[in-house]
Measured scan of single mutants.
Amino acid sequence: RLRTTITPEQLEILYEKYLLDSNPTRKMLDHIAREVGLKKRVVQVWFQNTRARERK
C-alpha cells in the first residue's frame, strides 16, 4: 500500500485545525478532508497520530 504524501500547505491547514480542536467530530473530519483534499480516513489517522505524539 502506498503512503499518502501530505504537502506543506495541507500540513499547515491540519495544524491550524488541530490547535482549534484536537479531537474533531465526524462532521468536522469530513469538512477538513474536503478542505485539504485528502480522504477522511487519512485526516482521521493524522489527528490520531498527532495526539499520540503530543502525549509523549
Rank of each mutant, 00 (worst) to 15 (best):
K17G: 03
L14G: 01
E54M: 10
E54V: 03
K56F: 02
P24I: 04
V43D: 01
L38C: 06
V36Q: 02
Q44D: 15
L2R: 08
L2G: 08
P24M: 02
E35M: 06
Q44Y: 14
F47S: 01
A33R: 03
W46Y: 02
L20D: 05
Y15T: 12
V43G: 00
D30P: 03
S22W: 04
R51T: 06
E9T: 09
K39P: 14
F47E: 01
R3V: 13
P24T: 00
L14T: 00
N49W: 04
Q44W: 11
F47N: 00
R53D: 14
P24F: 04
K40R: 12
K27V: 13
L38K: 06
W46E: 03
E54N: 10
D21V: 04
Q48I: 02
V45H: 06
W46S: 00
Q10N: 02
E9V: 08
I6K: 01
R51F: 10
I13Y: 11
L19F: 10
R41C: 12
E35D: 06
W46R: 01
L20Q: 07
N23S: 09
R55H: 10
Q48M: 08
S22F: 08
R53N: 12
H31I: 14
R41G: 15
L29M: 04
V45S: 05
D21N: 07
V42Y: 03
Y15V: 07
H31V: 13
K17W: 03
V42T: 07
W46I: 00
R3M: 14
T50Q: 13
Q48K: 11
Y15C: 10
E35H: 06
L38Y: 01
R51H: 15
T25E: 13
Q10A: 05
K40M: 14
R55A: 13
L11P: 00
V43P: 01
E9A: 10
Q10W: 02
D30F: 05
T25M: 05
R3K: 15
A33S: 08
G37A: 06
Q44V: 08
T5F: 05
T5Q: 13
L2P: 07
Q48A: 14
K39W: 01
Q10T: 03
M28Q: 10
I13M: 10
E35T: 06
R26T: 15
D30T: 12
T5K: 05
E12P: 02
Q44G: 11
I13T: 08
F47C: 00
Y18F: 15
V36K: 02
D21L: 04
A33Q: 02
K40T: 14
G37C: 11
K56A: 07
G37I: 01
K39A: 14
S22E: 14
A52W: 05
R34H: 08
S22Q: 06
Q10G: 02
L11V: 13
R26M: 09
L14W: 00
K17M: 11
R55T: 09
K39G: 13
D21Y: 04
I6L: 07
R1G: 15
D21G: 04
V45N: 05
K27L: 11
A52D: 15
K27H: 13
N23C: 02
T25D: 07
K40W: 12
N23M: 09
D30H: 06
Q44C: 14
S22I: 04
Q48D: 15
L19Y: 08
W46V: 02
R34E: 14
V45C: 05
V45E: 15
D21I: 04
R55K: 11
Q48W: 03
N49Q: 09
T50N: 09
I6A: 06
D21R: 01
W46D: 03
E9F: 05
I13F: 10
G37N: 13
R26G: 08
Q10L: 03
E12N: 10
P8A: 13
V36Y: 03
R55I: 12
V43I: 08
L29C: 07
E35S: 08
D21M: 02
K39R: 09
V36D: 06
T5G: 09
V45R: 05
L2S: 14
E54S: 06
T7A: 14
T50A: 12
V42P: 06
K27A: 14
A52K: 10
I6G: 06
K39Q: 12
K39C: 13
R34D: 03
Y18A: 00
R53H: 13
P8M: 05
A52T: 05
V36P: 02
R1N: 12
T4N: 04
E35I: 08
I32H: 03
V42H: 10
I13L: 09
Y18K: 03
D21W: 03
R26C: 14
I13W: 06
K56S: 11
R41Y: 12
K39T: 15
R34K: 12
L11N: 07
R51Q: 15
Q48N: 07
D30V: 06
T7G: 08
P8K: 06
K17P: 05
N23K: 10
L19Q: 07
R55L: 13
R34G: 13
E12D: 10
Y15L: 12
K27N: 09
R3W: 08
D21S: 04
L11H: 11
L19K: 08
Q48V: 08
R34I: 04
P24V: 01
V45M: 07
I32R: 00
T5D: 13
T4S: 10
K27I: 06
L19A: 09
D30Q: 09
T50P: 02
E35P: 00
L2M: 12
Q44A: 11
S22P: 05
H31W: 09
P8I: 12
R26D: 15
W46T: 02
W46H: 01
I6M: 13
A52V: 05
L38G: 00
R26I: 15
R34A: 14
G37D: 10
N49D: 11
R1V: 10
Q44H: 09
Q48F: 05
R41K: 15
E12S: 12
P8N: 12
I6N: 02
P8F: 11
N23P: 04
P24W: 09
L29H: 00
G37Q: 10
K56W: 05
Y15F: 07
A33W: 02
Q48S: 11
K27G: 13
P8Q: 07
R53V: 11
L20T: 07
V43K: 00
A52F: 04
K27Y: 08
L19D: 09
I6H: 07
M28Y: 04
V42E: 15
R41A: 15
N49G: 07
D30G: 10
P8T: 04
K39V: 11
V36S: 12
T4C: 07
L38N: 00
T7S: 09
F47P: 00
L14I: 01
L29S: 04
T4G: 10
E54K: 02
F47Y: 10
L20F: 10
V42K: 06
R41M: 12
N49L: 06
V45W: 04
I32Y: 07
E12L: 11
M28R: 06
K56P: 09
R41N: 14
R3L: 11
Q10F: 00
R1I: 14
E12A: 12
V36E: 02
L38R: 01
R3T: 15
R3Y: 12
L38D: 02
M28A: 11
M28C: 10
S22D: 12
R26L: 14
H31T: 14
R34C: 07
V36M: 08
E12T: 14
L11I: 11
P8S: 04
Y18L: 04
H31P: 04
L20K: 12
R55C: 12
R26P: 07
K56V: 06
K17R: 06
L29R: 05
L11E: 13
Q10C: 01
Q10H: 04
L14Y: 01
L11R: 11
R3E: 14
D30L: 06
R41Q: 15
V43S: 02
L20M: 09
E12M: 10
I13S: 11
P8R: 06
